[in-house]
Design a binder for these strands. Structure first.
Lengths: 241, 241
DNA sequence: TCAAAAGTGTTGAGCGTACACCCATGC
DNA sequence: GCATGGGTGTACGCTCAACACTTTTGA
């Protein structure tokens, strides 16, 4: 079956930049392309938009189909429309960025992908890597640029919206939360000031539990209070780290 | 001539939210649709993306063709992809927002538009107008929603990027600049604090001239120093109003 | 001389930042 | 008992916000 239009049209795709954080670093989910174009290269998960779905739905579907992820934080990022960004033909791509709890989700390949893995963001070549790349990973198409845009957005946004909690397990220590912010913001934070500020917002529920299996004093666990955040932000609270 | 593809494709359009400020209020440029779809309704200027142009280029071209504007500040806003946002067929639209000096540009209709005019933003029905609309202007398609998104973006962005100067004449008084910020931010500002803060950034060049033709003491004119801003912002200056 | 807007300083409160030590726990 | 990170308070400087009067100019 084929489809005919009076004027030529670009193909329309979505691509997802899926971030995760572990003890080590900020990571991004990559898939290895199995199809013809850019075969074998590492790329962001994505695919073409269907006529009966919104862009958000297309992004969620691709994420599910290509990497088995569902119920993740997903937000539109930017639309990339360079004429030659795909060598086959004109493809415009609406990029999304997503945040997942790595602990809950193993990277696994699914349809259309030969393989999937979490890669350290700092090991990937992007426009902001500069010109001295010590063997950085090259992504297919303009995905390096898309990743760069996503990283900037994450860095800006994490400061005034409680995105961090999307990346951590439901129960976490203040140390983990601070580490997350340090990884995302790419700078160290002062422990006392960080704790004072975060706790002062009254958005963390202090649990009766502590972490398990550590070779030193166990830290208290906290949980983010989404309901309280919703209520307060309607009244004009501004979350700022 | 017709064009055939293996899978169906949405049409891809760009729409532009063009803001201007005059003595009175924040305005947006609307065109009255001359084509078949939404005939006679007021809408944002826009049109379909050609295969040989980027999205930015398409936005600039449409703005030129439909309203005669060129060399304006233009930035991608968000991509709107609801399935039924256009009743004719599936159309995905990449929205742009633009800032122009109203004093330099009369609104004038061109190709594809029956008429063009500057409308007060607050007279237009948007999702944030609430449910008590005292005869607000309805835009075609989902353009009310697009306008709303653009207004929020402008409000956020004007605070930490010197966008305001795109909306004023080259030479302006501090009164005009403050008025602009008050209109965009939708709240009054303290005169002394505003002047201290703005002048303290050393981004305004104090001219030897004063305004002309006013029935009271004439105010000094200033000019924004783009070069100095470029230099300083590379060194990590943060412009904040 | 009157009307209208230009221009100008000070003070108090709150916030961000810098900084060091004792405590609890597991091994 | 020692290594490791958990947990805690204070002081200073800066920025923000509130606030009112004199000066200049044109009509």
């Amino acid at each position: 079956m084929s489809h005919t239009y009076q004027y030529p049209r670009p193909a329309l795709a979505v691509d997802c930049v899926v971030f995760g954080v572990d003890d080590e670093a900020l990571k991004v989910l990559l898939i290895q392309r199995a199809g013809v174009a850019a075969h074998g290269q590492w790329a962001l998960p994505g695919g073409f938009v269907h006529l009966d779905e919104t862009l958000d739905e297309a992004a969620a579907r691709e994420l599910r189909e290509e990497s088995g992820l569902s119920r993740v934080f997903l937000e539109q990022l930017y639309t990339f429309g360079q004429v030659d960004r795909d060598p086959r033909e004109r493809v415009v791509s609406v990029a999304y960025f997503a945040l997942v709890r790595m602990s809950d989700h193993q990277a696994k390949a699914a349809t259309d992908a030969a393989d999937a893995r979490w890669a350290r963001v700092r090991d990937i070549q992007t426009p902001s890597s500069g010109t001295d790349p010590p063997m950085l990973l090259q992504l297919a198409f303009d995905h390096g640029e898309i990743l760069d845009t996503a990283r900037q957005r994450l860095r800006n946004k994490v400061r005034y919206q409680p995105l961090g909690f999307e990346l951590l397990p439901e129960k976490f220590t203040l140390r983990q939360l601070q580490h997350l912010y340090e990884v995302v913001l790419e700078r160290p934070l002062d422990k006392r000031n960080f704790r004072r500020k975060i706790l002062g917002m009254n958005l963390l529920e202090e649990l009766a539990e502590t972490e398990q299996g550590v070779a030193h004093r166990a830290a208290r666990l906290y949980r983010f209070d989404h309901d309280r955040y919703e209520r307060l932000s309607r009244e004009g609270l501004n979350f700022e780290v």
